[in-house]
Computed example of a mutant assay.
Amino acid sequence: MEYALLQDNGGSNAPSYAAITKLEHWPEQPQGREQSLVSQLQTTLEIQQQLNIVSMAAGKLLPLAWLQVHTAVGDFIASGSKAAIYEHRSMLILNQQCLAELVYQSDSAFTPMLQRELLQLETEWLFALRNALVVSRLQQMALKDTLTGLGNRRFFDDSLNKAVQLAKRYDDSCGLMLLDLDNFKQVNDIAGHSTGDELLIAVANTMRDTLRITDSVFRFGGDEFAILLSAADTASAELIARRLLKTINQIALCQKYQVTVSIGLALLQPDQSLAQLFTAADQALYQAKNAGKSKLRIAL
């Protein structure tokens, strides 16, 4: 289920950061439990934390077993949720804009009186949730490539740093693949940039479908991509790389314009720094490009 959180035509409906921080954007609430809940919700702009706060409040009204929220920026489940017999769904709407859908589950029936009580809780959440959704959306936009939806260079730098730190801390392994499309420039020259964009989107979708759920793919810009492989050894990493070579070559647009991919692969060594890992993968990619089209080279 998708919801229109922000309008892209000028962003007129999206509050600014300044608007988010002004207290006058919060409606006045009566004293007591209502004010306490609103105050708690104002302490965080994390959707997951807000959901946990609402779940605790709802748990005081009935033996709540499950609470989930569906939003345009993702689905979130309250901590400790377990499936139950009875279910109640509610749409969260603010200023004629659908923010999210809440899904409650309980071993007790949702009577009309309980539904009215839950509606009051939801009303108190609306402004905090709206602000959290705006911030989450802005964060996603800052870390995503707008054409392909893949992580951008900024997101890659942060993810690579975390992956290397975790691998060293837990004596684990990780791998880095750098990819560059062969003959891509001629697509823009022959068919135009719109066709080039279609090809890049097709390549991005193919990589998503080919990689494991634990791997992450990023677009540097142009026709350059990077992939972080978690818990990878040489054999499994090479298998993934060769599978990518095959699947990308089979894309219809790639075949039409004779576009292939070159890949440089490096696995983190015990004595390597983040910069050294990247340099190793980059040098392997350079060797693959020099060896011809549709080649894989592995850093030794």
Rank of each mutant, 00 (worst) to 15 (best):
S294Q: 15
Y286V: 02
P30L: 10
G221S: 09
D271P: 01
L181G: 06
Q97M: 08
A280T: 07
R242N: 12
T247G: 02
D172K: 11
Q97E: 11
A128Y: 05
A232T: 08
A204E: 07
A291Y: 03
G10Q: 04
R33H: 03
D271V: 12
K168I: 14
K295Y: 09
E87W: 04
L99E: 07
F155D: 15
C254P: 14
G149A: 07
L94N: 05
Q120E: 15
L129Q: 04
L244E: 03
H193E: 02
T210W: 02
L228W: 03
A241G: 05
I47K: 10
V261Q: 03
T206I: 10
M56I: 00
L300P: 12
D209L: 08
Y170K: 02
F184P: 02
K293N: 12
L285R: 02
G292K: 02
Y17D: 13
T148F: 01
I93H: 02
A226T: 09
H25P: 01
E46W: 04
M91Q: 13
I248K: 01
Q287N: 14
S106H: 05
S106K: 04
F127V: 15
Y286H: 10
F76E: 01
E46I: 10
L67V: 02
L200E: 01
I251V: 13
L277V: 03
Q186M: 11
A237P: 07
M1S: 13
D145S: 09
